[in-house]
């Protein structure tokens, strides 16, 4: 018997095995893109309910970024916001019968963690240059360089494991309960899974933002910080 944690390739494109998680991810991408395109086609100066809801989402995202990091949200809004939306929709895709959320697969969460790891480097270099990024490892002093280097890997690893563990466990519990107790019994657990999915998406996005902003701040020279 195969482990439920193993991804089963449905078909292959060249050397790349295409699993259900990848297919679901493409579906989520299509839904998000089509939805975004449809919702943002006619933006006006006098917003209706639809535009007001969209602006509320963006404004809330900006507020969260600003309150979490104190930085201007514009450079981070696209990456952090998309991470949050994707993880949230992926987590909630478990509500569709027959679908497993992509975030319940190791590859998806690991890919997200890798992207956060790379974005920390990207925004760190953009904020303070290569020297600034390297300087961020010496914060608060050079003795901490090995620990900071180790932390830069472990913290994203912990993010990835946390997301994977929570979502995968929710899927497992619901699957086990559904197999044991019938159709309606898992509904409260599914509701709880909705909450868990929202909280995990929020935690993942906020932690990514915290890591990025910490690196940018540590890499900024003191003279620029004071000004």
């Amino acid at each position: 018997m195969n482990s439920p944690l193993d991804a089963v390739a449905l078909f292959q494109i060249g050397p790349v095995p295409i699993t259900q998680a990848i297919l679901t991810t493409w579906g989520i991408m299509a839904v998000l893109l089509l939805g975004a395109f449809a919702l943002t086609r006619r933006l006006t100066l006098t917003p209706g309910r639809r535009q007001a809801a969209l602006e509320l989402i963006v404004t809330t995202m900006d507020t969260q970024i600003r309150e979490t990091t104190g930085a201007e949200p514009a450079p981070y809004r696209g990456f952090i916001g998309t991470l949050f939306l994707f993880i949230l929709v992926a987590n909630w895709s478990s509500l569709i019968p027959g679908l497993d959320p992509p975030t319940a697969q190791l590859e998806t969460d690991a890919a997200l963690a890798v992207l956060v790891f790379l974005s920390v480097i990207w925004f760190g270099v953009q904020g303070g240059g290569v020297a600034g990024y390297l300087r961020s490892f010496a914060s608060p002093n050079v003795v901490m360089i090995p620990l900071n280097m180790l932390e830069s890997v472990t913290r994203v690893f912990s993010m990835f494991v946390r997301l994977f563990g929570n979502v995968m466990s929710g899927v497992f519990v619901i699957g086990i309960v559904a197999s044991l107790a019938g159709l309606l019994v898992p509904i409260p657990l599914m509701a709880l899974d909705l909450l868990t999915g929202l909280v995990q998406a929020y935690i993942f996005a906020v932690l990514a933002m915290v890591f990025i902003s910490a690196t940018v701040e540590d890499g900024t020279p003191k003279s620029q910080k004071e000004t």
Partner: peptide, 8 residues
Amino acid sequence: GLGLQAVN
């Protein structure tokens, strides 16, 4: 799969 998801 990891790489493809990252690209996605």
